[in-house]
Deep mutational scan, measured.
Amino acid sequence: NKEHILAQKEVLTPIEYEHYVKHLFDIGEITKELYIELSS
């Protein structure tokens, strides 16, 4: 869920976080809207 993803932002580097969010989007775990929101 969104809270879990945002928690990852605390422990990952910005680049790792971007890759993580992109991966979730690629596998269909999150919607495009959520992907855009989380990567901003």
Results as ranks from 00 to 15, higher is better:
13 T>F: 05
31 T>I: 04
29 E>W: 15
4 H>R: 08
6 L>C: 02
14 P>S: 10
39 S>W: 10
8 Q>M: 13
31 T>P: 07
14 P>N: 13
7 A>E: 11
19 H>E: 08
35 Y>P: 00
25 F>W: 12
23 H>T: 11
1 N>K: 10
27 I>Q: 15
35 Y>A: 04
32 K>N: 13
26 D>T: 12
10 E>V: 08
5 I>L: 06
28 G>D: 04
21 V>G: 00
34 L>K: 04
31 T>S: 06
33 E>T: 07
27 I>P: 00
5 I>V: 08
17 Y>A: 01
37 E>T: 09
34 L>T: 11
8 Q>L: 10
29 E>P: 00
27 I>G: 07
22 K>Y: 14
23 H>G: 04
19 H>S: 14
37 E>D: 13
1 N>D: 15
9 K>A: 07
36 I>E: 04
33 E>M: 08
12 L>P: 01
27 I>A: 15
29 E>T: 14
17 Y>L: 02
33 E>I: 06
25 F>H: 03
2 K>D: 04
33 E>L: 08
20 Y>H: 03
4 H>A: 09
39 S>H: 03
36 I>W: 06
3 E>T: 09
6 L>P: 02
39 S>F: 11
12 L>Q: 04
29 E>L: 14
7 A>R: 09
33 E>F: 07
2 K>Q: 10
36 I>K: 11
27 I>Y: 08
13 T>V: 05
24 L>A: 03
6 L>W: 05
4 H>V: 11
35 Y>I: 02
23 H>M: 10
22 K>P: 00
2 K>P: 09
5 I>N: 01
17 Y>S: 01
10 E>F: 11
23 H>D: 07
33 E>H: 05
4 H>D: 15
8 Q>S: 07
39 S>N: 15
13 T>M: 05
27 I>R: 14
25 F>M: 09
28 G>C: 04
22 K>D: 07
21 V>K: 02
9 K>E: 03
13 T>L: 09
6 L>H: 06
12 L>G: 02
30 I>P: 00
40 S>I: 13
10 E>L: 14
21 V>P: 00
1 N>E: 07
21 V>F: 03
10 E>Y: 11
31 T>R: 03
40 S>Q: 08
34 L>N: 04
12 L>Y: 06
9 K>T: 04
19 H>I: 14
32 K>A: 10
3 E>S: 14
24 L>M: 08
21 V>Q: 00
4 H>S: 12
18 E>P: 02
38 L>R: 00
37 E>Q: 14
25 F>Y: 12
35 Y>L: 08
40 S>D: 11
7 A>V: 06
6 L>Q: 09
9 K>G: 05
37 E>K: 06
31 T>G: 12
33 E>P: 06
26 D>F: 07
39 S>Y: 08
12 L>K: 05
37 E>F: 12
29 E>S: 07
2 K>F: 14
28 G>Q: 05
1 N>L: 10
7 A>Y: 06
7 A>W: 05
28 G>M: 04
16 E>D: 12
1 N>C: 10
11 V>D: 06
20 Y>A: 02
22 K>E: 10
27 I>M: 15
37 E>M: 10
28 G>N: 07
36 I>S: 11
2 K>W: 12
31 T>A: 07
30 I>G: 00
23 H>A: 12
19 H>D: 04
18 E>G: 08
10 E>I: 08
32 K>S: 11
32 K>Q: 09
21 V>A: 02
5 I>F: 07
7 A>Q: 10
28 G>I: 01
23 H>E: 11
20 Y>G: 01
25 F>D: 00
38 L>W: 03
32 K>F: 14
22 K>W: 15
24 L>W: 03
27 I>H: 15
40 S>A: 15
17 Y>N: 01
29 E>H: 13
3 E>D: 14
34 L>C: 06
4 H>P: 05
15 I>L: 12
34 L>E: 08
5 I>A: 04
32 K>W: 14
27 I>D: 11
40 S>E: 12
2 K>L: 12
38 L>S: 01
20 Y>S: 01
13 T>D: 12
24 L>H: 01
1 N>W: 15
17 Y>K: 00
27 I>E: 07
34 L>Q: 09
14 P>T: 13
